[in-house]
Design a protein around this nucleic acid. Structure first.
Lengths: 170, 170
DNA sequence: TGTTGATTGACAGTATACTGACGATCTAGG
DNA sequence: CCTAGATCGTCAGTATACTGTCAATCAACA
C-alpha cells in the first residue's frame, strides 16, 4: 500500500516558523555580542552571571540559576570558568555546609565596568536594522511573550522569589 | 586610588536586553517543541534538517548547512544521528568524491508525516499567550530583523544560492 | 530523637553551537 | 600537465543547555 504523500512542505514555512526565527535570532545575537566583546573573553552567559552576582553579592548557585533563568547543571561550569579567570570567588556559608556563596572579585568588578559599553553597543546592534518605533514594539512584545511563557522552560525566571531567602527582609 | 563605582546595574536592565530575551525565548521554544514532540525523539535541529533534505533531495552537507543556517561542523553529528535512526541515507556523489548526497529514507518520510501536526502545535503554543494581532506583528518584525541581520552570524542563510549549484538550472 | 523528605552542588550522558585546523579532492591558470 | 587555491567532510577543543542521578546536608515532623 503506497504511503500517503507528504503535505506540501516548503522551506519558506520553516523560515517563517517562530521556533526557527528564535533560534536564528539567538545565533545572531550571540555572534554580535562576541564580536563587540572579543577583547574581554566573556560570553553572554558569563556576563549575565557576573551582573547577577554583582547585584546580589553572596548569592548561591541555585538561586543564581533562578535569577538568570539558567540550568543549575550548566551553571556549575560557568562558575568554574569565572572563578578560574579570577572574576568571582566562592566562600562556604557558615550556616549551611551545602552552600557556597558567590562574590565578585576586584578583577570581576573591573571587567564589568569595562565591558558594559561594549555590551551596550552589542545590544544596540542587534536591533539596529529596525526603525526605532519597530524596535520598541518588538521589545515590548518579546518581554510580554517571555513573561507569559515563563513556566514553559525548565528553569523559569524567579527574580524576586530567589531573593526572599537570602537573608534580607522578605 | 579607589576605583570608580560601577554605574547603576540592575537585573531589570538585563531582563529587558534584546540578547537576554532572544536567549530566553529560544530556551522556551525548544522546551515547548520537545514537549509536543517527545513521542518522536526528534530535536528541532533534526526536524529542520529532515525538512530541508525532503525539500532538496540529494543535497550535500555543506549546502544543507547554508539552507538551514547551521554550522557545518555541528551538522556532521546531526547527520550521523539521523542516519543512525535510519531517517536519512548518504550516497557518494559520482562526480565528486568529496561529497556525500543526502536522501530521506522511507522511515524518514514517514516520521516527517507523523510529526508535522505536533510541530505545528508547538509553533502555535510558543505564540499562544499573545493576542493574534500581536503574534502577526511579532513574527513580521522578527522575519525582518533576522533577514536584515543575516550576515551577522557565522553561517548566513543562503537559501537560493545553495541550490544553484545542485545541478538544477541556475 | 530519629527518620523522612527536600535541597545543594556535583556528575554523567546527550545535543547544539562555534573556532580553527586537517587531509582528500576538485578547479583554474599557466 | 601540474601546481595554487578553493571546497568537502571531519575532527579537536571550548561553551551552553537539558535530563537524570547521587551523596551530603538540612529541615520538619512524629
Amino acid at each position: 500500500m503506497p504511503s500517503k504523500p507528504l503535505p506540501p512542505i516548503t522551506m519558506d514555512a520553516v523560515y517563517a516558523a517562530p521556533g526557527y526565527l528564535f533560534r536564528r535570532m539567538q545565533q545572531i545575537a550571540v555572534s554580535i555580542f562576541m564580536e563587540e566583546c572579543k577583547a574581554f573573553d566573556l560570553t553572554p552567559v558569563q556576563y549575565a552571571a557576573l551582573i547577577a552576582i554583582h547585584t546580589h553579592p553572596g548569592i548561591d548557585a541555585t538561586r543564581l540559576s533562578a535569577v538568570i533563568a539558567f540550568d543549575r547543571s550548566t551553571l556549575g561550569s560557568v562558575i568554574e570558568r569565572l572563578q578560574a579567570k579570577d572574576y568571582i570567588e566562592r566562600k562556604p556559608a557558615p550556616e549551611d555546609k551545602r552552600i557556597k556563596l558567590l562574590y565578585l572579585t576586584k578583577s570581576g568588578a573591573a571587567i564589568l565596568r569595562e565591558i558594559i559599553p561594549a555590551v551596550e553597543r552589542a545590544q544596540a546592534r542587534m536591533l539596529e536594522p529596525l526603525k526605532p518605533a519597530d524596535r520598541k514594539q518588538l521589545m515590548g512584545l518579546l518581554v510580554q511573550l517571555v513573561d507569559l511563557n515563563n513556566e514553559a522552560s525548565r528553569v523559569p525566571l524567579r527574580a524576586e522569589d530567589a531573593l526572599e531567602h537570602l537573608g534580607k527582609a522578605g
